[in-house]
Amino acid sequence: MSRSEYRSTVLQSLKTMLIAGKYGLERWSYVLQRISGVVVALYFIAHVLETGNFIGGITVWSVPDYSFAEKAYEETVKLLKNPLFDVGLAVVGFLVTFHTINGIRLILAHFGFFLGKPRRPEPFEPPVSFSTRQRALFWLSISLAVFALLYALDSLMRVFRT
């Protein structure tokens, strides 16, 4: 496979992963679960590095006079002063809440709960696995995530005002 072909394949995959199209609610849950998972994982890596920098963990990379560690600490503090990071934290709150509740829904679905039993297909009826309970959990995850986002933004606004 040539390089350009390979790139177009990956772009195609990204498009499939990120655009739910007309495939309904469960497809949206797939897209959101994927995005939230990747973003939260990146946040987690950044969080480990950043707390390490604050605490002097960066010294593992530094020679004993630790001027590099101090510089890294100063730079981390300066970098994170940006209010964009604060808004980003609120978004991470949204994504974490969604990923948690939707993850529980997915675990339940993977163990076969909340899906309903196989039955004879009836015309004009939705599939059994699109059950009300399972979809209710999805909407619960969305609403809790929105609540978390609003709560965080509200606190943020109070911080910015003071």
Binding site: T9, V10, S13, L14, M17, R34, G37, V38, V40, A41, F44, I45, V48
Partner: peptide, 22 residues
Amino acid sequence: LLLCTTIHAMNGIRAVIAELIG
């Protein structure tokens, strides 16, 4: 928390990358 998140995140990213590049 650190251990759980690392395992969970790396396993998840493994699946995402495999599905991204096919």
